[in-house]
């Protein structure tokens, strides 16, 4: 499956061109995936997502891609770009420093079609670690009408609250590559986010969930999850701090 196309629409004189290789696969009637190649013009600010949308507009509207906000906030457009998991809307073609840009669906996620993958398992594991504050009382009946925190207490977890659930960390994780039951770095980092929150009282129930042979002990601190995170969440740090707490290294 290969096709080389180009379009002579009007572009600025600074525009360059690259070969965009898009993985095509429809599980309903394809036995294996293949690549289609397109010649795409780009400026230095053009993102990979814009190039894919350009292909959809001018060459092949059937290319399946999920996207929404185009500003690295919704976490929809994660894909493998030149071999590494990245957000297509947050990756400029000019930064890749390559004449060929290859886009594939994220690893370790079932493929719906082409570049779109299923997120059900990611959301299931995220939900499994109880991603909400657990306590008996509520701020609605407290005198201050809110649970007050010091700036230092906020610093303990705010980094991990930046997670946009894009799945890049799970795609880069070497344990996720072979273990279908592993909770994954996204959920483990979110477990730390709530355990570290001074307002939360659900530490014990949350730790019971991740204290499993396919839970936190399966992380081997390869750190790839942190290297690909587009929001600076650093899941590897959260997981090690959480494990340090469980091992009694820290309070």
């Amino acid at each position: 499956m290969a096709q080389v196309s180009s379009v002579s629409n009007e572009q600025s004189p600074t525009a360059k061109s690259i070969t965009l290789k898009i993985s095509r696969y429809n599980p309903e009637h394809d036995e294996s995936s293949g690549f289609m190649e397109f010649n795409v013009k780009y400026e230095k600010w053009t993102t990979v997502l814009e190039a894919i949308l350009d292909v959809k507009k001018h060459f092949d509207h059937s290319v399946a891609v999920r996207y929404s906000c185009r500003q690295a906030t919704c976490g929809s457009c994660g894909m493998i770009i030149n071999g590494k998991p990245r957000l297509a809307c947050f990756t400029k073609i000019s930064e890749l420093d390559s004449n060929t840009v290859t886009v594939e669906p994220m690893n370790n996620f079932p493929v719906i079609r082409d570049l779109a993958v299923k997120f059900e398992k990611l959301f299931d594991t995220h939900q499994k670690i109880k991603p909400y504050l657990i306590r008996d009382d509520t701020e609605l009946v407290s005198d201050e009408k809110e649970f007050l925190q010091t700036p230092e207490e906020v610093e303990q977890y705010i980094q991990f609250a930046n997670c946009i659930k894009c799945g890049l960390c799970n795609s880069a994780c070497p344990t996720m590559a072979t273990d279908s039951s592993f909770v994954g770095p996204q959920a483990l980092a979110q477990a730390y986010r709530y355990v570290a929150d001074s307002r939360d009282k659900g530490k014990d129930s949350r730790l019971k969930i991740i204290d499993d042979s396919h839970g936190i002990w399966r992380c081997h601190f390869a750190g790839s999850c942190s290297q690909v995170c587009p929001k600076g969440v650093d899941p590897a740090m959260g997981i090690q701090l959480l494990r340090g707490y469980m091992l009694g290294f820290s309070s």
């Binding site: 610093e155 930046n162 750190g223 969440v233 701090l241 494990r243």
Partner: peptide, 30 residues
């Protein structure tokens, strides 16, 4: 090194991340 890291030793402290988001856990000590 890995055992110390697993105990949360030398992996940095949580802080508000700044672009370009270099992960603190992948620091020079490791």
């Amino acid at each position: 090194r890995v055992m110390l890291g697993h105990g949360g030793v030398g992996v940095g402290k949580p802080a508000r991340p700044d672009y370009p988001y270099d992960p603190a856990s992948q620091n020079y000590r490791h």
